[in-house]
Design a protein around this nucleic acid. Structure first.
Length: 833
RNA sequence: GCGAGAGUGGCGGAACUGGCAGACGCGCUGGACUUAGGAUCCAGUGGGGAAACCUGUAGGGGUUCAAAUCCCCUCUCUCGCACCA
């Protein structure tokens, strides 16, 4: 009996079955839970291959853990606020809400079509008031605790779009949308005090055992802890001293000038030439040449009383340290360059412990102090402490710890985001919206011009309100929240179903934290750091006991593909290449390098096409087979066909033998080669999943078993039982990877219940062990013979047999045997003179 | 510049604690079946050589009975940070 494999038929059938049966619904129970989460997508329109890969990885884990008996929470939702919806609205005239919800509807269908095992009852959409209400609620709690505050600061401003850009929207100093040069602009904004948790966030990285090293490192770098000294330098003719920060107190005697950031308050006081100061400000924060402006004032080096000039310098950052530095050109390359340009003295105070100092540049390493008064002769490390102590005792210095991390600016001059729940009253000032009035609904009737400024500010009905305190006229905050706020706690929202309290303690307690988080490494810092911060705030609000949101993190690599370029028409889609020539003009196509799939390079494969042609199981299988998850994956059409062929071979194997297979029942007896291979396969697949989720090798193992089963020609009834055993175990192993085909074949083989309800197969160590092993015989480390020997022979016997090999006898005759080594009963190395 | 990771057949990738390099898949070659095949099946496939054998994991050196794996140097690529004082 042969039946053709028609993926669509099989897959739709089972997707419908799973949905009806509610197989993936998960509720609080007394079973052990496993929270498996993939980063939720931005509803941009359609899913791309990166999603397919991300969600295939997560789904295998979820399905595997379910078979292992865990109560698996596996939810999905939509990161639905953000600029693209607003851009589309401006360009096409559709409302952001409609655009977003239409996209969600389409993408949800795509995800269902991939056979992903989500509990859709828990689906969240961040642009829905019932979700963003809680953003506002958290904001108010933070406001109460002083964790949310308002301050004026420099932000990235795109003059052409007339809006603030997030750091990540500035690419090489330019706007990601219109390519204009981004400038720094001072604006009053809302901030969240992530710095309150900086030390805890840093310390806790030590406990992130399930995170990739590189992500931990990136987090540490981002936090950027450094220990140093803050010291006051007096300024001649001024009552205000300048406070500088340095990590190199040992170089204090070498400080020959002082630099202030252009935005430093003292800069305004000391500089008379306003125009010159403005000019320096224009160069602030840019990686071009160093620019300085002499203030005309001198500071006193507290170490040696030296009179040193005070400069304004574009390269000194206001946001880091104190916004002022002591400059030591002999031992800091930046100061060195500045000193060269402005002809300032260079004073060497550190010598290398060995060898000469480098010529024509600063010596930045630790060394031994010279020309440093009583500190001369000390090593840098010691001198740092001693000099700091001296300044401390004089009351003009303090040892401090500095972080690179800055507070998180969350105000956005955009429409499509969560309204910040604050009201400004002329009499009462800043008044939080009372909790009973939440959510502050984002009005639908808004003009989106793209001309910039906050669209809400133009919406009178939204802005005008009454002060909750005094009832007088007041206006609402018109900025909205950074969308990273939405994603900083969505994993907590999933713990409760739609109609339940978002912060139900019992739910949160049972499900948090996320046992396995899967997503792209591009969020290594931002989203993951914000989430770690937010979870601690939630903890301190008494809602959860956990501090870390994600116990284990898997960062999957990018999906890449070859690029094609026509000399005439530029980048081509793969479908536009016909026999190596451009479809449009017939010129030969240049093969470009393999790069991350992107619309701009046109090296993309549409998941819809892929699924129509090969089915979801093939799409999943190839995504998982072509590379281990953490590495980049190179998309390859031929490879996809290979995956398809594998499923088809298995399909044919089952169907061609169905009658016989279904006529035998019961377990096979004894350990035959096929039974052994089956046990070995279970062992390998289990190990590969457990250890690092290396699905590619797990799939390879299953392919081997299929190959062996295909070559097996059963005759006796016992042999048919063997084959049935091999195939059934295989289907169980395959079911997390290719769930549709596994279900269908499982059912075809006469099983009543869904394969989803069968536990993960176990293996017998004894049955998995080979009876015979191939003994490799080396002479002087080179393989000279191979022979089959029974498992478990003593070393002496192995050596004896090895020595008797003709080839070995030939090579060793008349030679003295110096030594022999035996390795785990599998290899003998004979060392001769 | 600093930090991290990676370089293995024609390609994607395997190789558990140093112990048979190249599992599995793609491609390629030959064959079978076919009106045909870009379907399916079988066999072969790192390079050199008729063979014995030699050689081979970016390049060079070292440790070891034994190195893709450990150590040192060099090169290349990817990613992250980048005037953080």
């Amino acid at each position: 009996m042969n039946r053709k494999y028609i993926p669509e038929e099989v897959e739709l059938k089972w997707e419908e079955y799973w949905a009806k049966a509610g197989l993936f619904n998960c509720d609080v129970s007394d079973k052990n839970k496993f929270y498996c989460l993939e980063m939720f997508p931005y509803p941009s329109g359609r899913i791309h291959m990166g999603h397919v890969r991300n969600y295939a990885i997560g789904d295998v884990i979820a399905r595997y853990k379910r078979m292992r008996g865990y109560n698996v929470l596996h939810p999905m939702g939509w990161d639905a606020f953000g600029l693209p919806a607003e851009n589309a609205a401006i360009k096409e005239g559709t409302h952001p809400a409609k655009w977003t919800y239409d996209n969600i509807a389409y993408m949800k269908k795509q995800l269902v079509r991939l056979g992903l095992s989500y509990d859709w009852r828990r689906e969240i959409t961040t642009c829905a008031p019932e979700y963003y209400k809680w953003n506002q609620w958290f904001f108010l709690r933070m406001l109460e605790r002083g964790l949310a505050y308002r301050k004026s600061s420099f932000v990235n401003w795109c003059p052409s779009c007339a809006t603030v850009l997030a750091n990540e929207q500035v690419i090489d100093g330019r706007c990601w949308r219109c390519d204009s040069v981004v400038v720094q602009k001072e604006l009053e904004q809302w901030f969240l005090k992530i710095t309150e948790y900086e030390e805890e966030l840093l310390q806790a990285t030590g406990g992130l055992k399930g995170w990739p090293e590189n992500v931990i490192l990136m987090q540490k770098n981002w936090l950027g802890k450094s220990e140093g000294l803050e010291a006051f330098f007096k300024i001649e003719g001024s009552d205000d001293p300048v406070l500088i920060f340095t990590t190199r107190a040992d170089t204090l005697y070498g400080a020959t000038f002082v630099c202030l950031a252009p935005g430093h308050p003292l800069a305004e006081k000391l500089v008379e030439d306003r125009a010159a100061l403005e000019k320096i400000k224009e160069h602030y924060g840019k990686l071009d040449e160093k620019h300085g402006l002499f203030t005309g004032h001198y500071a006193i080096n507290p170490a040696n009383g030296g009179r040193i000039p005070v400069y304004i310098a574009n390269f000194v950052l206001m946001e880091y340290g104190t916004g002022a530095i002591m400059s030591v050109p002999a031992h800091d390359q930046r100061d060195y360059e500045f000193a060269q340009k402005y002809n300032l003295p260079i004073r060497t105070v550190i010598r290398p412990e060995e060898g000469p100092a480098p010529p024509e540049r600063a010596f930045e390493e630790d060394g031994v102090l010279v020309d440093s008064g009583s500190f001369s002769g000390m090593k840098s490390a010691v001198a740092r402490t001693e000099i700091a102590k001296l300044l401390e005792s004089k009351g003009i210095g303090k040892r401090v710890v500095n972080y690179r991390l800055r507070d998180w600016g969350i105000s956005r001059q955009r429409y499509w985001g969560t309204p910040i729940p604050v009201i400004y009253c002329e009499k009462c000032g800043v008044v939080p919206v009372p909790e009973k009035d939440l959510p502050v609904i984002l009005p639908e009737d808004v003009k989106l011009t793209g001309k910039g400024g906050s669209p809400l500010a133009e919406t009178g009905s939204f802005v005008k309100t009454a002060c909750p305190k005094c009832g007088g006229p007041a206006r609402r905050e018109t900025d909205t929240m950074d969308t990273f706020m939405d994603s900083s706690w969505y994993f907590i929202r999933y713990c409760s179903k739609k109609d339940e309290d978002a912060l139900d303690r019992e739910n949160v307690k049972y499900f948090m934290s996320v046992d396995q988080y899967v997503g792209g490494v591009e969020h290594a810092v931002l989203h993951l750091l914000y989430s770690r911060f937010f979870t601690r705030v939630v903890r301190d609000l008494g809602i959860t006991d956990v501090s870390e949101p994600f116990t284990n993190l898997l960062t999957q690599g990018m999906v890449c593909m070859e690029t094609y370029k026509c000399p005439e028409h530029g980048w081509l889609y793969p479908s536009q290449v016909k026999e190596g020539r451009c479809e449009l003009c017939g010129s030969p196509v240049e093969k470009g390098r393999t790069e991350k799939m992107s619309k701009s390079k046109r090296n993309i494969i549409d998941p819809d096409h892929l699924i129509t042609r090969y089915g979801a199981d093939t799409a999943r299988l190839f995504s998982l087979f072509a590379a281990p998850p953490e590495r980049d994956l190179e998309w390859n059409e031929k490879g996809v066909e290979g995956a398809y062929r594998f499923i088809q071979r298995l399909w044919t194997l089952v169907h061609a033998n169905l009658e016989k297979l279904n006529s035998v029942k019961g377990s096979p007896e004894g350990v035959t080669p096929l039974i052994r291979k089956t046990h070995q396969t279970i062992k390998r697949v289990t190990r590969d999943i457990e250890k690092d989720y290396h699905f590619n090798t797990a799939i390879a193992a299953m392919m081997e078993l299929v190959n062996m089963t295909g070559a097996f020609e059963p005759k006796a009834e016992a042999e048919w039982r063997e084959m049935r055993f091999a195939l059934e175990e295989l289907l169980l192993l395959l079911s997390p990877f290719c769930p549709h085909a596994a279900e269908e074949l499982w059912q075809a083989m006469g099983n009543e219940s869904s394969i989803q309800s069968i536990p993960w197969p176990g293996y017998n160590e004894e049955a998995a062990r080979e009876e015979e092993v191939e003994l490799v015989v080396q002479v002087n480390g080179k393989v000279r013979a191979r022979l089959m020997v029974p498992q478990g022979l003593p070393d002496e016997e192995l050596k004896r047999r090895a020595m008797n090999e003709p080839k070995v006898l030939e090579l060793t005759s008349g030679k003295k045997i110096r030594n022999t080594f035996t390795v785990r009963g599998r290899l003998v190395n004979i060392v001769i003179a």
